[in-house]
Computed example of a mutant assay.
Amino acid sequence: MKTLLLFALVLPAAAQAQVHKCTVDGKVTYSQAPCERGQAAVIAVPDAPAPDPGAKTDLARQKREAKLMEKERLKREAHQDREDEATHRVAAKRRDKCQKLKQDQKWAEEDARGAQIQNSERAQIKARRVAERYKLECGS
């Protein structure tokens, strides 16, 4: 441990960054400031690597690709929105038609109940036909 501390003190002062590893009561902490108590070690931080000359062109290429992907995503979303709207329109049209058929069925049944004896059979046939048409169109 003393050699480690001695080694830490011998490090050249020209190092740009140092990290101090401190161990106090079995807990290890890292800091830029020297340790106040406990075991101490200095870890030299290497210099940052030199900038990559191709990084600028890579970044520009990645930006172009990202812009293209964003454009494609927006196009897909717009297409999906149009399909969703068409589906909703069809569903609303079907719902309206089914509501109308249900109302026709209700009225035909009311007519059949209120018809006079001679017209009763004709009104019941009409009510049955409306009910069958509703069942075919709406499935209920």
Rank of each mutant, 00 (worst) to 15 (best):
Ala50Ser: 12
Ala15Leu: 14
Arg37Val: 11
Gln18Asn: 07
Lys67Gly: 07
Ala50Pro: 08
His20Cys: 01
Ala50Glu: 15
Arg37Ser: 14
Ala44Glu: 04
Glu36Asp: 11
Lys27Asn: 07
Gly38Met: 05
Glu36Gly: 08
Arg64Tyr: 02
Ala50Gln: 11
Cys22Lys: 00
Ala8Gly: 15
Val42Gln: 00
Ala33Tyr: 02
Asp52Arg: 10
Ala60Thr: 10
Gln62Ile: 04
Ala13Asp: 13
Lys71Met: 12
Glu36Ala: 15
His20Tyr: 15
Ala41Ser: 08
Asp58Gln: 12
Leu5Gly: 07
Gly38Trp: 08
Thr23Tyr: 00
Pro46Thr: 04
Cys22Tyr: 00
Thr57Trp: 03
Cys35Pro: 00
Ala44Ile: 12
Thr29Lys: 06
Lys56Glu: 15
Ala40Trp: 12
Gln32Ala: 07
Leu6Gln: 13
Ala15Arg: 09
Cys22Asp: 04
Pro49Gln: 06
Gln18Tyr: 00
His20Pro: 00
Lys67Tyr: 03
Gln39Glu: 13
Cys35Thr: 01
Gln32Ser: 09
Ala8Met: 05
Asp58Asn: 06
Glu36Thr: 15
Asp25Pro: 00
Leu5Trp: 03
Ala55His: 06
Leu5Val: 13
Gln16Lys: 12
Cys22Trp: 02
Ala8Cys: 13
Pro12Cys: 04
Ala48Asp: 09
Cys35Trp: 05
Glu65Gly: 02
Glu70Gln: 15
Gln62Met: 10
Pro51Met: 04
Leu9His: 11
Ala40Cys: 03
Ala41Gly: 02
Cys35Phe: 08
Ala50Asn: 07
Gly38Ser: 07
Glu70Val: 02
Ala33Lys: 09
Leu11Cys: 10
Asp47Lys: 10
Val24Leu: 14
Leu59Arg: 10
Arg61Asn: 14
Ala33Leu: 11
Ala66Gly: 04
Ala33Arg: 05
Lys63Pro: 00
Lys27Tyr: 01
Ala40Arg: 11
Val28Tyr: 05
Gln32Ile: 03
Arg64Gln: 14
Met69His: 12
Ala41Asn: 04
Met69Ala: 15
Glu70Asn: 12
Gly26Arg: 04
Ala48Phe: 03
Asp25Gly: 03
Thr23Lys: 06
Pro46Val: 01
Ala60Ser: 09
Thr23Met: 03
Leu6Cys: 08
Cys35Gly: 01
Thr57Gln: 15
Ala13Cys: 03
Ile43Cys: 01
Lys56Gly: 13
Pro34Asn: 06
Lys56Ile: 13
Gly26Trp: 03
Thr29Ile: 10
Lys21Gln: 15
Asp52Ser: 10
Ala41Tyr: 01
Pro51Lys: 13
Phe7Glu: 14
Gln18Met: 07
